[in-house]
Nucleic acid binder design. Structure first.
Length: 918
RNA sequence: GGGCGAAUAGCUCAGUUGGUUAGAGCACCUGCCUUACACGCAGGGUGUCGGGGGUUCGAGUCCCUCUUCGCCCACCA
């Protein structure tokens, strides 16, 4: 016996000290580490089970969203580890291109410098140093919430290995023609000075204005047409006005010329089918360089594409725009320019009217600046060929997405997928591995070139741009496991494909969909079989928690105050599938009460139970003689079986059979809240509220019966702790290691996941006992009898009262001792029934104390209904037998129903009979 | 504009193929410091399952419709 005496268990659980020490002990024991050789794919015996972390930004600090995300992953990975898998959780961070660059730019701005003043090399080095000094804090913080990640495999998207993966990926796609250079209108952030992908340019509903502007005819200035625009400053880049070719109103005008106000240029009226005849005047100005739509039209019509806005969002004659921007507007910031242009139009009589306009405007997802559509040279990935297999993989069930509703969203996006702009005009990130020469030759290279241009020998310079951060993220499941350098390596072989990906729906397209594409493209296999999309943590007004709103919750503060277990329990148990978690940042006490309360309760259950059972080892469940079981013993064993069954059902299958999810299993499992509830119900409502109470008197007297109770208490608590461990790892491990018979050096974290014990059908008599006790408690409450006072004869007034009174006295002791004193289960049941029946007779005159009569009436009503339905069903089955109209499966289903209802009828009859009826 | 979803207790949500008396947590009310626990124990449901119609012996569950919310996507200037 190496566990400390139970009397040493402190009355208060000190989560802080316990958790820190225990985490260190787990880590020192190497319990987080997964070994490829242990897996079936690596020659071992365990199924591999892998989760890769959604890598947080390397500069991030832990917020409650990370807390939820990682708690979910940890629950799943701990469950699989106990279930016997070689479970690997790969941690790591993302270099987070724009985000990190912005942080460092702000830093050097405070020092009075800019990245341009520093120069590229110095700036990148400064950023790398910043990351070395302060980065990865979040990985330390994850330990505080109990994350059982394999830290020996910590990855970073900008590490040499992962940079290799990025480069290999780029070159392969380039060689296949799937990466290409395009000159087109893209989303441009004038503050970050970079292009953005469609996903990075987020729509925000905005109250704007719609300006109606008169464009006079060049040859007859008295006549004019009117166009509408939300961005009047872009009119300086107008090259035409378009109408729909079928628009009868304007067909005769096609080819005539207008005089563009302010710029004073002649522009033609052209025809293009993209114009909506119904919108506004049916005439639209064409600004090819500053609107993606106009760009396409301009390309079709062979129009010029003057650029009149500078990269940093000021008016200027940037390209092909000589003389378009008047001196008075040049150098003006775009929104100031808008005001000024409107004023000028008004002064010159060209402004017709201004309407309020509600529309969606794209903003930079990093700095929230309004995005400027802008013509520029960028790198793109051709997505359609990559999307097709990724779409099919989901439709075929190679990958399932839970909850289900995101399937449709995924399919919808994949079907309408557009090419991905992957170049960023940033310095922090993977530089595009393409070298250009003045002679026009360029190439994507796996290794930096040593000489000059292979074609002409001239200067050979690398592309200035870096890659979108997500271009490294989409390789995460394969790159963290060794692709491409160790493509035959043990890790990739053992742990890829991974299993479950846990993340928020916001990055379904940014990340998840693209990982599926990359996995299929580079390994031919999907990167994971399950995508688990959880909700968002919000405040009581349903607002997303954010720094700017000041409504965030610091998980470390919660851990400090209530412990990691309380944090985890509150989030996991309070989280429906894909449903948001609501927490009150202004009342942590209340928000985390469920977790804190349960942790305390658990501690007290453990403290009492361990004190009662002492230190002597107990017998194994399998060695107990069930013939000597009390009804309570049968009952608790059945409740444990229920709990194991419920937890398993909630968690579901760990992996798809034969690699593909059958239709009926695609939405089954990973119900962590249901798992939590099943474990809680067993430990609290079954074990503590009833079984522990039932055992109190038995434990007082030494002997066989005491040994039986001890064995069952220990076994049930042990297995309850196992079920709960994935959610509340610290307190469960702490209590588990104090159980009698604990073997030094073993860990709950590695203990076997419970298997349901064999059921006993002799437990129902304990249910009757519970019913009787509950009934008496109701009487007592209804009549406001203090617990020490018996239900007396003067109240009930006949012989049955003596029995009630007896029971009452016993129940004051929390349990029917009379019941517990006899081993004859049948006799116990009979006694309880008699009690209930006796109570019924006595109580009915008192009106509404225990309305067993009503209960019985309801049962009889139901029975009558069921009989009627059964007759009807049988009639229908009979009919079906004589015709071939009803398809066979329906008949089978109804026959099954017939059997089921027949059984229920029998059950109800028995129940009514047991209540003292016919 | 296209696609998808939701509406069940005061709040947040379960309710699997239609079938006992529609559940849980939190909140709330009543009574209890009963020698593990007041962060606890015992008892308590206050619901026209959004409205209307339909299918069925039977509908919270299936169909139609209306209303109200939400999410994703999108080039109405």
């Amino acid at each position: 016996m190496t566990n400390p005496p139970s009397s040493d268990i402190p009355a208060q659980y000190d989560a802080g000290a316990t958790e820190r020490a225990l985490y260190a002990a787990w880590e020192a024991a190497g319990l987080f580490h997964a070994e490829s050789a242990q897996t079936t794919r690596g020659g071992g015996t365990r199924d591999p089970f892998t989760i890769v972390i959604p890598p947080p930004n390397v500069t991030a600090v832990l917020h409650v969203g990370h807390g939820l995300n990682n708690a979910v992953q940890d629950v799943i990975v701990r469950w699989r580890r106990m279930a016997g898998d070689e479970a690997l959780w790969v941690p790591g961070t993302d270099h987070a291109g724009i985000a990190t660059q912005n942080v460092v730019e702000k830093l050097i701005a405070a020092e009075g410098s800019t990245r341009f003043a520093m120069g590229r090399e110095a700036f990148v080095e400064r950023t790398a140093e910043f990351v070395r000094q302060t980065g990865g804090v979040i990985l330390q913080q994850l330990r505080a919430i109990g994350a059982s990640a394999d830290w020996s495999r910590t990855a970073y998207t900008l590490s040499p290995e992962l940079s290799h993966a990025v480069r290999e990926c780029f070159v392969r796609l380039y060689e296949k023609g799937l990466v290409y250079r395009g000159y087109r209108v893209i989303h441009w952030c004038p503050r970050c000075l970079t292009s953005l992908s469609d996903e990075e340019a987020e729509f925000k509903d905005t109250h704007g204005k719609l300006y109606h502007v008169r464009y006079p005819f060049a040859d007859d200035p008295a006549q004019s047409i009117t166009v509408a625009t939300t961005r009047p400053e872009t009119m300086l880049g107008d090259v035409a006005v378009a109408v729909h070719p079928d628009d009868a109103r304007y067909r005769h005008l096609i080819g005539t010329e207008l005089l563009l106000p302010i710029a004073n240029l002649r522009i033609p009226i052209v025809a293009d089918a993209f114009v909506d005849k119904e919108f506004g005047t049916g005439m639209v100005k064409i600004t090819p360089a500053h609107d993606p739509n106009d760009f396409e039209a301009g390309k079709r019509l062979g129009l010029a594409m003057p650029v009149v806005i500078t990269p940093d969002g000021h008016m200027g004659e940037v390209h092909d725009a000589d003389g378009r921007v008047p001196a008075s507007l040049r150098g003006l910031e775009r929104f100031d320019a808008r005001k000024k242009v409107v004023k000028m139009l008004q002064a010159q009589g060209f402004l017709v009217k201004i309407d309020q306009h509600h529309h969606a405007v794209r903003h930079c997802y990093r700095c929230h600046t309004v995005v400027e559509p802008r013509l520029s040279d960028q790198w793109f990935v051709k997505m359609a060929p990559l999307a097709k297999p990724a779409l099919e993989a989901v439709q075929a069930g190679k990958v399932r997405i839970v909850p289900e509703r995101w399937n449709a969203v995924y399919v919808n996006w994949m079907e309408g997928i557009r090419d991905w702009n992957i170049s960023r005009q940033l310095w922090w990130g993977h530089r595009i591995p393409v070298w250009h020469c003045a002679c026009g030759h360029d190439a994507a290279l796996r290794e930096d070139p040593t000489g000059g241009c292979p074609r002409c020998g001239g200067a050979w310079t690398q592309d200035e741009d870096v890659l979108d951060t997500w271009f490294s993220s989409w390789l995460w499941p394969i790159s963290t496991l060794g692709w491409p350098d160790k493509v035959d390596g043990a890790d990739l072989k053992a742990f890829y494909p991974t299993d479950v990906l846990v993340t928020a729906p916001e990055i379904l397209f940014f990340w998840v969909a693209r990982m599926i594409m990359a996995g299929l493209e580079f390994t031919g296999r999907v990167p994971f079989h399950t995508v688990y999309l959880h909700g968002t943590v919000r405040d009581m007004q349903h607002r997303k928690m954010s720094k700017s709103l000041g409504n965030g919750i610091d998980p470390l503060e919660v851990v400090e105050k209530f412990g990691a277990d309380a944090l985890r329990w509150t989030m996991i148990a309070g989280m429906g599938m894909g449903v948001d978690v609501l927490l009150d940042p202004d009342d942590l006490e209340k928000s985390f009460a469920p977790g804190r309360n349960f942790a305390t309760k658990l501690w007290n259950i453990g403290r009492f139970l361990l004190m009662q059972v002492g230190h002597e080892p107990v017998r194994a469940l399998s060695s107990l003689d069930r013939a000597s079981f009390r009804s309570a013993d049968h009952w608790i064993v059945n409740r444990l079986a229920d709990a194991v069954f419920d937890c398993d059902a909630a968690l579901g299958p760990a992996r798809p059979p034969q690699g593909t999810w059958p239709e009926h299993q695609r939405q089954v499992g990973l119900r962590l809240d249901a798992h939590a509830e099943a474990a809680r119900r067993f430990l609290w409502n079954d074990l503590a509220d009833w079984y522990v109470e039932a055992c109190k008197s038995r434990l007082a007297e030494p002997g066989e019966d005491r040994e039986l109770a001890r064995a069952l208490l220990v076994h049930c608590f042990d297995h309850g702790l196992r079920l709960l461990h994935p959610i509340m790892p610290f307190i469960t491990e702490t209590l588990w290691q104090r159980l009698p018979g604990y073997v030094d050096g073993t860990w709950l974290m590695k203990a076997a996941w419970p298997v349901a014990p064999a059921r006993s059908d002799a437990s129902s008599s304990f249910d009757v006992v519970k019913d009787v006790i509950t009934a008496v408690r109701q009487i007592r409450n209804d009549y406001a009898l203090p617990p020490t006072q018996q239900l007396t004869a003067h109240l009930l007034g006949n012989a049955a009262a003596a029995e009630i009174a007896l029971a009452e006295r016993v129940f004051v002791q929390r349990m029917a001792r009379a019941e517990l004193a006899t081993a004859d289960v049948a006799a116990l049941g009979a006694a309880a029934h008699a009690l209930l029946a006796g109570g019924l007779e006595v109580v009915i005159p008192l009106e509404g104390i225990v309305d067993v009569a009503r209960e019985r009436g309801k049962l009889e009503t139901e029975l009558a209904q069921l009989d009627k339905q059964l007759a009807s069903l049988r009639a229908r089955l009979g009919n079906a037998g004589f015709t071939d109209k009803a398809p066979a499966p329906v008949v089978d289903a109804e026959r099954a129903k017939d059997v089921e209802w027949t059984a229920r009828v029998a059950q109800l009859r028995a129940k009514i009979r047991a209540m003292g009826g016919a």
